[in-house]
Simulated scan of single mutants.
Amino acid sequence: MLFANETVSTAPLFLLVGLPGLEATHFWLAFPLCAAYLVAVVGNCAVVFVVKTEPALHSPMYFFLCMLAAVDLALSTCTVPRLLLLLWLDAREISYRACLLQMFFIHTLSGIESTILLAMAVDRYVAICHPLQHASIFTNAMTAKVGLMAVVRGVAFFLPLPLLTISLVFCGSRVLTHSYCIHQDVMHLACGSTMPNIVYGLTAILLVMGLDSLLIFVSYVGIIKTVLQLPSRQERLRASGTCVAHVCVVLAFYIPLIGLSVVHRFGRGLPLMVHVAMGNVYLLVPPVLNPIVYGARTKEIRRRALKIMGIGEDRGSHCPGCHKRTTIS
């Protein structure tokens, strides 16, 4: 498992890790993983399709939801198929270029998702705390600009990670501690100094995910203060109900991210299975959970999806003007 004096220019191969200790069951464990991936693909595609085809949902909140679904779909697609190859065909080797490309997509898409979650939090803050200004601030044009900014921000902050990795020299173990390539994992295999990688990686995480999570927290502090000042219990429940789905999605994204970061920086002595499990939870849970949460909490998405599947009827056809109202409950 060693290769002496081998540098980046020789394009070394890295070895991915499946599920340590469960190698004999890899073939069967891949089936539930594949099922989860199919749920993520179908669920996120359904969200995009429903919002696109339902005029009542053509509003900034649902456009942000479409962006979130697209990012989740891309994030799961750039990791899970490669993991299925590993489990079904024992294809552990990944080329250096493929590893760098996967690294770029994972970190960039994670940064984009963090920005979109922040934009959704600000949307809820303005809608609840400053409802009269919401329509003038969150226009469709502004929503498109925020989406573009999220992409530019993700690329600008995380493109340097694979570029910094190119300068590293690898002369020891090639075995990664995950089923995919991320910067922290590949960096730890380098022989020389990785201080620039450590400093920039930590800076990028703090300025994107760290700052976003702080601003989301501040937004919800303002939301909670406004909700508590509402005169009736029904109004408080209605206002807070519009935030439940977003809070669930935020927790599903940031809790595994924080756990994975802690494991990488302070858990080098932990069993390898802990690293693998945390990494897979971080990449698999949000894409699977997000469309389920929003599908269950958003009446319009739920009704439209049921109508497409032929299970329910479109109640809006019996209530003229109902299509103009969107509620989350």
Results as ranks from 00 to 15, higher is better:
P256F: 12
P286M: 09
N290H: 11
F266V: 05
Y254F: 12
S261K: 08
G295N: 09
S261Y: 13
P291N: 04
S261W: 07
V288A: 12
V293G: 04
V281P: 15
L284K: 01
I258N: 05
Y294P: 08
V281T: 14
V263P: 00
R265Q: 13
V276C: 06
P271W: 07
V288E: 02
P287L: 10
I255S: 03
G279P: 09
V281E: 09
I258Y: 07
V263I: 13
G295L: 12
L272G: 05
G259W: 02
L270D: 05
G295K: 05
V262Y: 04
V285P: 12
N290C: 14
V285N: 07
L270Q: 05
G259H: 01
R268N: 13
P287K: 01
S261G: 14
V293Q: 04
F266K: 00
L284P: 10
Y254V: 07
H264T: 02
I258Q: 01
G267D: 04
L257N: 03
S261L: 13
P287S: 06
P271A: 06
L289R: 01
I292A: 11
P286C: 11
A296R: 14
R265M: 10
M273R: 03
H275I: 07
L284N: 08
I292Q: 05
G279L: 04
R297F: 15
L260H: 10
V262A: 02
M273G: 06
L257Y: 09
S261P: 12
R265W: 10
Y282F: 14
M278V: 13
G279E: 04
V263Y: 02
H264E: 09
N290T: 14
N280M: 14
L260E: 07
Y282K: 09
P271L: 05
G267P: 06
P291S: 05
L289T: 02
G259A: 08
V263F: 02
H264C: 10
I292E: 03
L289I: 09
V293M: 04
R268Q: 15
R297E: 15
